[in-house]
């Protein structure tokens, strides 16, 4: 929790001091695309926040940092796993907790008078950590991996009123991470995310 509040504080300071920039905070729903036998459920427990600064006067290009986390969980009914020297029977939960931090750049397409709608496409590159866990009864097995994260993203910023600094934001992104797991049969991890939230703009 402390780290989240620290990030909020930093972003708040940036939005107050910087010009031609925006801070956003989005609810992030993610659909896993890799090894869906292990976890196929979508994650509704996720968020994405970031700060982006416009480069130049025309508000075409922006660069910034994005931080995200998401949590996947799926229940597996009781099954028996045979091995050469015995067997184990249990029901269990598979879980993945994911955090990521990328440096991103965006191109904003000119639409209309450039006062209300700012559609954009961008790319983020950075690192992420995946915690793969299996919970059975009171026991837990876990494997944590760091990896490279690439995130193409497209979305739109919507300014509610020209005098208001508060706006809405919606985007879709594809995440490809090399933070796979040998134990749980992930060579890599990828997901598609849909985000919706608010932004606080400085211009």
């Amino acid at each position: 929790m402390k780290i989240y509040l620290a990030i909020l504080f930093i972003f708040s300071c940036l939005t107050v001091s910087a010009q031609e920039s925006y801070f956003y905070l989005n609810w992030d729903v993610n659909v896993p695309m890799t090894n869906k036998d292990w976890i196929g459920n979508s994650s509704t427990r996720g968020a994405k926040a970031g700060y982006r600064h416009f480069i130049g006067d025309e508000r075409k290009f922006a660069a910034g940092v994005d931080f995200n986390w998401s949590y996947y969980q799926e229940y597996k009914p009781t099954e028996t796993f045979q091995n050469p020297g015995g067997a184990i029977t249990t029901d269990y939960f598979n879980e993945i907790f994911q955090i990521g931090l990328v440096v991103s750049g965006q191109y904003h397409f000119p639409v209309g008078n450039r006062e209300h709608f700012f559609p954009y496409a961008g790319l983020g590159l950075g690192a992420n950590r995946n915690d793969y866990s299996v919970l059975y009864n009171i026991y837990q097995d876990q494997e944590s991996k760091w990896g490279f994260l690439a995130r193409p993203e497209a979305g739109i910023l919507i300014r509610i009123g020209t005098r208001r600094k508060l706006g809405a934001m919606a985007a879709v992104h594809y995440d490809y991470s090399t933070a796979g797991s040998v134990n749980y049969d992930y060579n890599n991890f990828s997901n598609v995310g849909f985000q919706l939230g608010v932004m606080l703009m400085q211009w």
């Binding site: 427990r45 949590y71 249990t90 029901d91 059975y136 026991y139």
Partner: peptide, 19 residues
């Protein structure tokens, strides 16, 4: 969006059996 606890009732309603 914080990590929720897994359903304890489901986890604890049967023993893990390892042979």
């Amino acid at each position: 969006s914080c990590k929720p606890e897994a359903d304890a009732l489901r986890l604890l309603d049967e023993l893990v059996v390892s042979t």
